[in-house]
Amino acid sequence: MPVRVLEEWFAGCGGCEVAILDMGEVLLDVLPELEFVYIPVLADSKFFGQDGNGKEMDYPHADVALISGSVRTKENWEAAKQIRARSKVLIALGSCAAFGGISALANLSTNREIYDAYYGASNNNDQAEIPELTTEEMLNKVYALNEVVEVDLILPGCSPTPASIAKAITALLKGEEFKLSEKSVCDTCPLERKSKWGLETKRPLASAQFTPGDYNKTRCLAEQGILCLGPVTRAGCAERLDGEAEVPGCIRAFMPCRGCWGPVHTYTTPMSNMLGALASIGADTSSIPDKKALFNRYIGAHGNLNNCGKG
């Protein structure tokens, strides 16, 4: 009997769903064993029917539920609770579901500020009226999935690599255990390391000096003075489908790591980890702009980002 799979998206961009399709041939191998019972990215499903016959949210029962995106509205919250009750295994797919993700940057502002910025606050236009009936009721802040319901497995990444999704799905089908790496991105990075961190911090988007195509001859970006979140970010983005470890995603383009795989261990806080380490080697941390959003860019839920008591 095929495994019944439910897929739902909350406050996210849909990139995680594209990552599932990106699995390529592996997807073809596992497809006969999967039965998608609910997947809005492929097939529309209306709880309330074409004629409005249905009265309430009704998710089908499933063996495996994948949820991407963060919990932003009251509807998301209710849906998460129902999916949890009706599925055996719940997977938080992507950084939004796992840690709040990009959408949790909204935790820096109050809901009122967000509405004001969205419906007005432009220099050229008058403030538009904020619609009250047509917008969904928002929660007081953005939550990660595991703040709201119990989650069995997280697959971090923005978006998760097809390799990690493929590994997790095949492990589930075989009944094996799936574990995320407990190394940092630096452990999988091939760039050349010579000394300590560059003590002079460059501007965030300053380009690095690099030898195109030759990763072993390019100096570590952090040693060049470019703030790279590699030391405090979980490894995994370097993994390829064919099993060969490659270069971490952003480093492949000679850009610094942005931290989308979240903290190395779920209990660590990258901001204090990184700043503490930088301070102890004597680097000038005061020149790092907007530390709060920079180090918590993908992990704004779990109380990592707040609006400092504005409401």
Partner: peptide, 17 residues
């Protein structure tokens, strides 16, 4: 080292509210 870290910690605390 502790003194340098203390500066950073005091810089960070308002970020946590």
């Amino acid at each position: 080292k502790a003194a340098r870290r203390a500066e950073v910690i005091q810089e960070m605390l308002p970020d946590y509210g």
